[in-house]
Amino acid sequence: MPFQNIKGRENILKKILITLLVLTLTGAVAFTLYFRLRPAETSENPIIENVDEDIEIKDDSVVEENTSENYCLTCGQETAPENANLRPLAVIIENHPAARPQSGLEDACIVYEVVAEGGITRFLAIYTHKNCNNIGPVRSVRKYFAEIAKGYDAMLAHCGGSPTGYLAIKELHLADLDEFANSGAYRRVSSRKMPHNLYTSTKRLRERAEKKNFASNVSYESFKFKNDAPLEKRPEETYAIIDFSTPKFKVKYEYNRENNSYSRFMGGMQHKDSNSGKQLEAKNILVLITSIRVVDKIGRVDISTLGSGPAYAFLDGTVITGRWTRESLSNTIKFYDQSEKEIALNRGQTWIEIISPDKKVDFPEFQG
């Protein structure tokens, strides 16, 4: 082989080797500079790899299931583990003007409000994790109150009742704490005239229930709960007005942005609890629209709490238009938005207002 050809090939190989060496050194330098100069990975300045992937952003009002034993099954508030799954007490409380101000409504997890007869509304207050030493005035049961209590497997506290109310208690196999058969759990006060002077307490009712061997813990279908909306997402002010019958029973809720709650007014006046003297505050207001019809000469009504119908949910200063649904009397009433998603409530007291389609609900135009 000629000497010139060998020498030419050696020169070519040297050039290739030099080129590869330069490329290798350049890559190493670039790699080192990248890691020395890039910002450190901290919680304030995270390094995001795979930028094309979806990034999950935490929502302050995330929905949470009631899976923890430290949260009340009924209202979602934090409580002692032994109180989380206590069997609810459902107490009938009257709303005649002579019965105002009532005692103990502020301590209920849920309060249902509905017309009894003659346009006079009445309350079904559900107590689970909180103790209350003074509840009343206690009045008589109606069929629809017994049916609502069934959904919570609640122990029902009342004084007498309509014929259909007593029949519903029997047919639904409710744990009954009627004052007529359990007088030791109740007391009459001298400061008010009968029949507006009957009172009880959660302690007395639970002690009586224990003597009757009623189950103390039960499981039932609860609402979904979430954290309050952040302050910056809450409106400055809003309201909801619900017309049950006459002006004496008209209800208004005024939104409190700082507390993210609704102050309750009734008959144009602040609705206060007699125990504390404070105005009642709700975290959620649910309005259920259903059939309400008069069924006898006394003016008693029949109210449908089965099936489905229109509904409004007021929370976080917004209103959600949707529907309520209940498949059976063993289920609680649930509320859904227009996309058929169950509405998650704020933790705390909820008022559920039951009205007929001809009654008006007033609120500002904006909706959630």
Rank of each mutant, 00 (worst) to 15 (best):
F3T: 15
K7I: 15
I12C: 11
T19M: 13
V29H: 03
T32D: 06
P39F: 01
T42L: 01
E49N: 13
V51D: 10
I57M: 05
V62N: 10
T67C: 00
L73I: 11
T79S: 06
I92P: 04
N95I: 00
A98D: 15
A99H: 04
D107I: 00
V111I: 13
Y112S: 04
I120R: 05
F123M: 05
L124H: 04
I126S: 09
K130F: 05
I135P: 05
Y144K: 00
D153F: 00
L156V: 08
A157I: 15
S162Q: 01
A168T: 02
L174I: 08
L177G: 01
H196D: 10
T200G: 07
N217L: 08
L231R: 06
I241H: 05
K252T: 13
N256V: 07
M266Y: 01
S274G: 06
N275F: 08
K278W: 00
K283R: 14
R293L: 12
R293P: 04
D296C: 06
V301T: 14
V301D: 02
D302E: 14
F314D: 02
S328P: 09
S330L: 14
S339E: 15
E340K: 11
A344Q: 10
G348T: 06
T350Q: 06
E353F: 05
P357I: 12
